[in-house]
């Protein structure tokens, strides 16, 4: 007989797990955006060498699995700081730098998506380069980027489950712990599937709605 009462009994433990997943997502988005913007600025202002360095950064981070990145920083951060820092700090570093690579690509594609004619039109209309960027290019690029940013955030939310490998208690890990403790694997995982499914579905629907708003 399926029995779901243990979920109610462990609600606060599960909720804390969900909170950790969401917090890590938020940090990943903000940190990733910061790193991505920094990378984009390096690309814009440092010439060929900076460009190659950023390309290499992005290529490597996009070529290797997130789990490996998590392992890398779980091992490296304490070594660099010279003291143990715990899984949380190294996970934050890993997610921030990993997401940074993806966000810098989104930024680049967004800026590229604005047709060259738009810049020319703005310059021809007597705007300075900075004004053209500020009033013509950025608003358009931004509209193109926002939905992709958010879609990436949904992927990131799913990816936070990977902190399982360094035993951080995110939602999936918390579910696994109580599933094993109460011997209720089927019900626990069914419940976790439902929670992830509904959250991601709702978020995706929100992004779609936003896309339609921007398209108008």
């Amino acid at each position: 007989m399926p029995d779901y009462s243990f979920i109610v009994r462990n609600a606060s433990f599960l909720f804390d797990g969900l909170l950790l997943s969401l917090t890590l997502t938020l940090i990943g988005v903000i940190g990733g955006l910061a790193v991505g913007t920094a990378l984009a600025l390096v690309r814009l202002f440092t010439g060929v060498i900076g460009n190659y360095a950023v390309d290499a950064y992005v290529f490597v981070f996009r070529a290797i699995p997130l789990i490996l990145v998590i392992f890398w920083f779980y091992f490296m951060v304490p070594l660099i700081l010279g003291r143990p820092v715990g899984a949380w700090t190294s996970a934050i570093v890993a997610f921030t730098l990993f997401e940074g690579a993806y966000y810098s690509e989104i930024l680049r594609a967004g800026l590229k998506s604005v047709r060259a004619g738009q810049l020319n039109a703005a310059l021809a209309g007597g705007m300075s380069r900075a004004q053209a960027l500020r009033y013509v290019i950025f608003p358009q690029a931004f509209a193109a980027m926002i939905p992709i940013f958010l879609t990436q955030a949904i992927i990131l939310f799913q990816d936070t489950s990977l902190v399982f490998v360094v035993s951080l208690h995110d939602f999936l890990t918390a579910t696994t712990i109580i599933a094993n403790r109460d011997g209720r694997l089927i019900e626990a995982y069914a419940f976790a599937c439902l929670v992830y499914y509904l959250i991601c579905l709702a978020a995706t629907a929100g992004v779609e709605k936003l896309k339609r708003t921007f398209a108008r």
Binding site: Q158, S161, L172, T176, C193, Y196, L201
Partner: peptide
Amino acid sequence: RNIPLLLQMFV
């Protein structure tokens, strides 16, 4: 697409 791969693997 809406359930994390890790959870799918556990299932």
